[in-house]
Amino acid sequence: MTYLLLLAEFFKIGLFAIGGGLVTVPFLFDLTDRYDWFSKAELTNMIAVSESTPGPIGVNMATFAGFNAAGVWGGIIATFGLVLPSVIIMIMVAKMMSKYSCNVRVHNVLSGIRPAVLALILYAGLQVAKISITGSLEIVVFVGLLAMMRLWKQSPIIYLCLSAIVGIVLRL
């Protein structure tokens, strides 16, 4: 039963998460409200691991979330569900026209979806902040990290490693 639910939920995410990178995150936060597959804190840890391991973040997140929910097969089924809409739709697109371009209506729809997705990611960020920034020490670390990201633009892995060390040293 969990397998079927995983397949359905991740198929839905594959169908509605338009874009790349972190767009799957808000959809996964939605899952924490409806199932006990993983907590919001576990989900936040997953984001960190997915950003610092090879492969597309969305796929990493699906495998991780599925594994946490139902073991090895859970990970495989969740990933399969996430990928399936892409495969079906892209084959249709490739078949229908060799020279497909976004038409005016598709363009219009996207002009509304993009700011909505931005709101979704911001809202997910607020949920992450609520569980991770629990005291004044964390606020200082957060501001410091964000300032470094804006100024230096390094790979996320560097900041994640740094923050792990800071967490151990400061006993967060």
Binding site: A41, T44, G125, V128, S132, M149, A164
Partner: peptide, 8 residues
């Protein structure tokens, strides 16, 4: 620490 970084 990492969770704070994810927020950032």
């Amino acid at each position: 620490g990492i969770r704070v970084c994810v927020a950032a």
